[in-house]
Design a protein around this nucleic acid. Structure first.
Length: 446
RNA sequence: GUGGCUAUAGCUCAGUUGGUUAGAGCAUCGGUUUGUGGUACCGAGGGUCGCGGGUUCGAGUCCCGUUAGCCACCCCA
């Protein structure tokens, strides 16, 4: 026997989980489309040269790579941004600018696993390229907000910052050269203690007064207005820094105008993002009940997406929803649904001799848009109902000899265990309408 | 990739200082004279004690390796 098992960091998805994933995909798709983003897809495999040297040394190490049967060096995509850069460079002429796309697909990273962190996972990206308009930045924030709100996860917070504010600050402190290491240290403030971060900065040869100034900035908290005022003061004189503060200000004003609740969006100067290509606004979002899970939706603005593949500058802004991480969070918080069926009605196979009638009824219900699972065997009714209840069907339809004789049917609400009798006198349309309304009632009651 | 913790039935766990055919609850399946599920009763199936090696008369129990999970670093979704 071969032991059935999955690779480290790779997982099977059972119906309950697969249904939850599909629901999230549906929500994301709906929100993205609602803003005019169009779907695209790209291959899971790319020429190795397309993928290497794009993200950072880290992503190169994590890349799954091999030589294909034709001797080509290939790699599996580790995010959806790099393939999109290649895609954009290749197809710009057919797309028209600005171009908005969404892309929901699996990516692979050969790194160590942890909760909410796998080697195979799905991302749901959306980006607008070919415009530097702040409206596109604002739209990104609105999409992220609508997305997280629509998923119905309870509290969440979108943390905003602008790379230019950080750059301005570092410039004033004479640390522009070392922005990478400094920002990475600063980025840990949420997780590590202030002392640990200070020590790390000191280890990176940052002078004590500069460390103090950086921490003071990164730890600023308060209303957006006060934050902006204080950040403005900190970077005053830096053209870059002032531009960043102004951008944040207009972004917050726009979000408010679009109806985003004030407590959903905060300015957080410690948000830096590790990815080097961000140049303007950056954003991360967290579940209020589970901030330790990490960001579930992150993004920002970049000046030039596809510079490595084309001479045409393609500025853009976009973000990525970490579907599997979010799902892990929902499960941990007990928001995971136990439903294991995608159908609405469980049709009990009561009397084997009535098979043609059951088939006719099931077909009629399906034609009316209801999902129907018909049990394949005329097993004991109790067993059939037990299975149906376990799978989470909202309703079961019980029609045996007595019902057929009387022209009735029992609709059983599996959650409440209560049945109602439907009089349909052999008229399928009456039965279909009645089942439909019973189903709606059962769903809304639950 | 580095370090720490963990690993017994599908799930949650027992398993005495290493000592006979490894147990429980829940779950699953069957039944309680064959038309109705979450309660009751009866019964059944299911364990290479993660895997491999070592120490020992004898290891689930000790040692080493390995795989997987969790946590930290790192990075991020």
């Amino acid at each position: 026997m071969i032991e059935p098992r999955t690779l480290k960091g790779f997982r099977d998805h059972l119906p309950a989980q697969a249904l939850a994933r599909e629901r999230l995909l549906d929500v994301a798709r709906r929100v993205y489309r609602g803003y005019g983003f169009a779907p695209i897809d790209t291959p899971a495999l790319e020429y190795l040269e397309i993928l290497t040297g794009k993200g950072s040394e880290e992503t190169d190490k994590q890349l799954y790579r091999f030589t294909d049967h034709g001797g080509r060096d290939v790699g599996m995509r580790f995010d959806l941004t790099v393939p999109f850069a290649r895609f954009a460079a290749q197809h710009v002429h057919d797309l028209g600018l600005p171009f908005k796309r969404y892309h929901m697909a699996t990516v692979w990273r050969g790194e160590n696993t942890q909760r909410g962190r796998y080697r195979e996972f799905m991302q749901c990206d959306f980006d607008t390229i070919g415009t530097t308009s702040p409206v596109a930045d604002l739209e990104m924030v609105l999409v992220v907000h609508d997305l997280l709100a629509a998923i119905g996860i309870g509290g969440f917070t979108i943390r905003l910052n602008d790379r230019r504010v950080l750059a301005g600050m570092l410039g004033r402190l004479g640390l522009a050269e070392r922005s990478g290491t400094v920002l990475r240290s600063l980025d840990k403030l949420g997780k590590a203690t202030r002392e640990a971060v200070a020590a790390e900065l000191a280890a990176h040869q940052v002078a004590a007064p500069a460390v103090e100034a950086l921490l003071e900035m990164a730890e600023l908290r308060g209303t957006p207005q006060s934050m902006l005022a204080r950040l403005g003061a900190l970077v005053s004189g830096s053209e870059q820094g002032e531009a960043g503060v102004a951008a944040l200000e207009s972004l917050l004003a726009g979000a408010t105008a679009a109806g985003v609740p004030a407590d959903r969006v905060v300015v957080d100067p410690s948000i830096a993002r590790g990815l080097d290509y961000y140049t303007g606004i950056v954003l991360e979002s967290f579940l209020d009940e589970l901030p330790a899970l990490g960001s579930i939706c992150s993004g920002g603005r970049y000046d030039n997406l596809a510079g490595l593949y084309t001479k045409q500058p393609l500025p853009g802004v976009g973000a990525s929803l970490g579907l599997d991480r979010l799902l892990a969070g929902l499960e941990e918080l007990g928001h995971a649904s136990k439903v294991e069926t995608a159908a609405d009605v469980f049709l009990v196979h009561f009397d084997g001799a009535r098979l043609p009638d059951y088939l006719r009824i099931a077909a009629a219900l399906r034609a009316a848009g209801m999902g129907v699972e018909f049990f394949p065997e005329p097993k004991k009714v109790g067993q059939q109902l037990k299975l149906a209840a376990r799978r989470g069907f909202p309703g079961a339809l019980v029609i045996g000899g007595d019902e057929f004789a009387a022209g009735t049917a029992q609709f059983k609400n599996l959650a409440t265990q209560q049945s109602v009798t439907i009089d349909w006198h052999g008229d399928l349309r009456v039965l279909v309408d009645a089942v439909h309304s019973q189903l709606e009632a059962a769903k809304h009651a639950g």
